[in-house]
């Protein structure tokens, strides 16, 4: 059986559009609400990234930090996150879920324990922001044994030699960071420039799915349509914050935003 992540890319390709990946923080602004948000967006999102909140995030901008602190303040624990995934999968068992976080959380849980829990709760992929190549070699191997994709990050600063090495050793999906920025930064390079870099990476092995993330909003997503997949994270976290501040329902508002994103790439 193929990984639902690969199925999602195939489906999007058949519809002649990039896959839409969303990122929300687990437990933002509560366990129940973050589950409801996943349910509300699953119709329009192809792959759901779920952030594991950490309190010293070195690669996240203010929007995701705000979401993460909110979730931690409400007391979210790793086991709660697995529960959210499991409950979501009862609702939509084929929708792929990727957990994204920092390595210390996995390290404290124990890598093997963590992967076992991923497997039983239905996690399909992992992005570990601060576990780069080649430090991630062993962990990626462990993921593979569990049929969980370990998603490598690639950046504009990644050298050609390194790109080749990483992609050669990568699982079917990789993540290209659009620009030099933390998550949610303002897009400081043109979509054309981003796609140029993307194509350079894609050429190395066209079979690997490459998604683009960082700084993508409903304003810019339409200009990057030719990628295999596009990730929107901070814009969604921002919408949750905005909704809470104006006493509106984040579940409905995020649902609307993701529908809008989907329409922009159709």
């Amino acid at each position: 059986m193929s990984n639902p992540i690969s199925v999602a890319f195939k489906k999007a390709r058949a519809e002649n559009r990039p896959a839409l990946l969303t990122y929300t923080v687990a437990g933002d602004s509560s366990k129940k609400q973050s589950l409801n948000i996943l349910k509300a967006i699953s119709k329009n999102a192809d792959i759901l990234e779920l952030g594991v909140p950490h309190n010293t995030p070195v690669a996240d901008g203010s929007q995701i930090q705000t979401s993460a602190y909110r979730a931690i303040k409400k007391g979210i624990k790793i086991n709660d996150i697995f529960r959210i995934v499991r409950d979501f999968k009862k609702f939509d068992k084929n929708k792929p879920i990727i957990l994204m976080g920092y390595y210390n959380m996995i390290f404290q849980y124990g890598a093997n324990n963590f992967l076992n829990k991923c497997k039983t709760s239905g996690v399909n992929g992992l992005i570990v922001v601060d576990l780069p190549w080649p430090e991630n070699k062993d962990f990626a191997k462990k993921c593979k044994k569990k049929s969980i994709y370990f998603i490598q990050l690639l950046s504009p600063t990644t050298t050609s030699k390194r790109l080749k090495e990483i992609i050669q050793n990568s699982h079917p999906m990789n993540y290209f960071i659009s620009m030099l920025s933390t998550t949610g930064g303002k897009l400081k390079v043109s979509p054309l420039e981003i796609l140029k870099n993307y194509n350079r990476i894609k050429k190395i092995n066209p079979k690997k799915e490459i998604v683009i993330g960082f700084g993508i909003t409903d304003k810019t997503i339409g200009k990057l349509k030719s990628a295999d997949g596009l990730v929107v994270g901070s814009a969604i976290c921002k919408e949750i914050t905005r909704s809470l501040n104006s006493r509106q329902n984040p579940v409905t508002n995020v649902g609307k935003l993701v529908r809008k994103l989907k329409n922009r790439i159709k």
Binding site: E135, S155, I177
Partner: peptide, 12 residues
């Protein structure tokens, strides 16, 4: 020790 850093910082 080690280098638990985001990919962007590997090169610098």
């Amino acid at each position: 020790g080690g280098n638990f850093v985001p990919e962007t910082l590997k090169k610098p």
